[in-house]
Design a protein around this nucleic acid. Structure first.
Length: 491
RNA sequence: CGGGGUGUAGCUCAGCCUGGUAGAGUACUGCCUUCGGGAGGCAGGAGCCGAGAGUUCGAAUCUCUCCACCCCGACCA
């Protein structure tokens, strides 16, 4: 393991890239734009998955699986949907390879051309709604609330590990309802599930909002989102929940008989979060020493490092450590005892700081004499000496305190970096100097939004849904505006 | 697809201008001393110098062609 990480203040982007690699989260794959998620990175993703999956089940959803291949014709059925995804689809055209004539390798067998080309799912609305047509006949079949954990492919031009990759992992929920109200309620309920998860588990504050027409999901009536702010002042969309109206039901002829016997189109929603959350997790909290993981998602919550000169010392320390491990496991705290003699304590300290392990316990001969241990917090770098018998409770308090502490820190940062502006001059100045979220009045037109984007690279992240709408004047056009919206430069 | 850059040890790179036995740091292997914040010494293994063609007695180095990757722009969760 090489030493040192670039400093955030010097090159934030490089810091992120290096951190992802050095903390053993992920690396680039032989295929451009794809990533190899390493065991440590995947362990974090698994913890996210486990909690989210539980939350989905608790809100009445079931998991299912739909195929990765989608007939090309399906994509064409919803007009806006084609528009949004056509440009980034990977397409399967053949089903066989053969030996080249000159034996130089394998070539695509031109004889094996598919009758209908298949696209690799960029999202699964089409195949799912095509299936829902067969599953839904009556109001008794509704609501239908499914989720799937899968990979999807969107052929991106520029990629970055976790933040934007050609293939990524996500979950996509797809629900069907009898009424508009119920579907809207579902859309907002899942937005709230995401909000709770990101705030309570990832320790990142969010702004809930609704997307403008140009940022809306292709095929949705409304797209709701949660927006987060990274340490460099750029925004990151952490999750989206779409109210699909009857768009897909109409495209795929999904109708149901009402209680009264009338035939009506079904109302739909879809919602997803992806491995991009890993990017948010990394960028929201970590420092120049490495990752800072919120305790509830850390694969290892506590690491114990023995400090010893010889075999006898190690044995004596190990015996005392067993009691500590027991105390921690009793409290469902995940703990790793690193008694390797191949690395020195200082090396291990740096290593676990790089990997964001929330609490480190060090125990050496001096501690052994005093029945103590040294406990260090990753987020604040504070160290304290603790009696061995109190370690379980001390660590437990420390972990929950740490969650609150990093959340509060992120919240304070976020709030300090929301700037309200009343003029375009001021708007540009804020974007150029401090970045962050910029709250401003907007006249509601695509033209204004586009011009601002072209001139400043800032986009409308969302129209907040938890703020009182106050009328005003658009900073760009001077026309009337019904509400302030949130602008930012975004990932 | 435009504009710029880079390909040499697992990784980061020097060497190229001015052709002459393939280098450093780090990582790796072994031994000794160390061990409360990324230790030190000694020894060792490691390379089709991106690919092909050319010039030359001789090419990592000069010439040409190709390929790959990275950065900056146009698209996006």
């Amino acid at each position: 393991m090489s030493k040192g990480l670039p400093k955030r203040s010097e090159d934030y982007s490089l810091w992120y890239n290096e951190l992802v690699k050095k903390a053993d989260l992920a690396e680039n794959s032989p295929v451009r734009g794809c990533m190899i998620i390493k065991p440590y990175g995947f362990a974090i993703w698994e913890k996210m998955q486990a909690k989210l999956d539980q939350m989905f089940k608790e809100t009445g959803h079931s998991n299912a699986y739909f195929p990765i291949f989608i007939p090309k014709s399906y994509l064409s059925k919803e007009a806006d949907h084609i528009e949004g995804f056509a440009k980034e689809c990977a397409v399967v055209t053949h089903y066989r390879l053969k030996q080249a004539e000159d034996r130089s390798g394998l070539v695509v067998d031109p004889e094996a051309k598919l009758e209908e080309e298949l696209i690799i799912r960029p999202t699964s609305e089409t195949v799912i709604w095509n299936t829902y047509r067969n599953w839904i006949q009556s109001y008794r079949d509704l609501p239908l609330k499914l989720n799937q954990w899968v990979n999807v492919v969107r052929w991106e031009m520029r990629t970055r590990l976790f933040l934007r990759t050609t293939e990524f992992l996500w979950q996509e929920g797809h629900t069907a309802h009898a009424t508009r109200e119920e579907a809207k309620e579902e859309t907002l309920k899942m937005l709230q599930v995401y909000t709770d998860f990101v705030q309570d588990y990832m320790a990142i504050p969010v702004i809930q909002g609704i997307k403008t027409e140009s940022e809306r999901f292709a095929g949705a009536v409304d797209t709701y989102c949660i927006e987060t702010l990274m340490q460099d002042g750029r925004a990151l969309q952490a999750g989206t929940s779409h109210f699909l109206g009857q768009n897909f039901a109409k495209a795929f002829e999904v109708k149901f008989a009402t209680r009264e016997g009338a035939l009506e189109y079904v109302w739909g929603t879809s919602w997803g979060v992806s491995t991009r959350l890993m990017g948010a997790l990394i960028m929201a909290h970590s420092d120049d020493k490495g990752l800072i993981l919120p305790p509830r998602l850390a694969p290892i919550q506590v690491v114990i490092v023995p400090i010893f000169k010889n075999e006898e010392q190690l044995e004596a320390i190990s015996a005392a450590v067993q009691g500590i491990v027991h105390q921690l496991k009793e409290r469902n705290i995940s703990v790793k005892y690193d008694d390797r003699d191949t690395h020195k304590p200082g090396w291990k300290f740096a290593e676990y700081e790089l990997k964001g392990v929330p609490v480190r316990i060090a125990m050496g001969p001096r501690d052994l004499e005093n029945s103590t241990a040294e406990i260090a917090r990753r987020d604040s770098s504070e160290k304290q000496t603790c009696n061995q018998q109190d370690i379980g409770s001390t660590v437990q308090h420390m972990l929950s305190g740490m969650h609150n502490s990093i959340y509060q820190k992120a919240l304070k940062f976020r709030d300090q970096n929301i700037t309200t502006v009343d003029s375009y001059e001021n708007f540009k100045e804020v974007l150029d100097t401090r970045g962050g979220f910029v709250r401003a009045h907007w006249d509601g037109t695509i033209e204004t939004e586009q011009r601002i984007k072209d001139e400043t690279k800032a986009t409308i992240r969302c129209i907040p849904i938890n703020e009182e709408a106050k009328a005003g004047i658009c900073i760009y056009s001077g026309k009337s505006s019904s509400q302030q919206v949130i602008f930012a430069k975004a990932y």
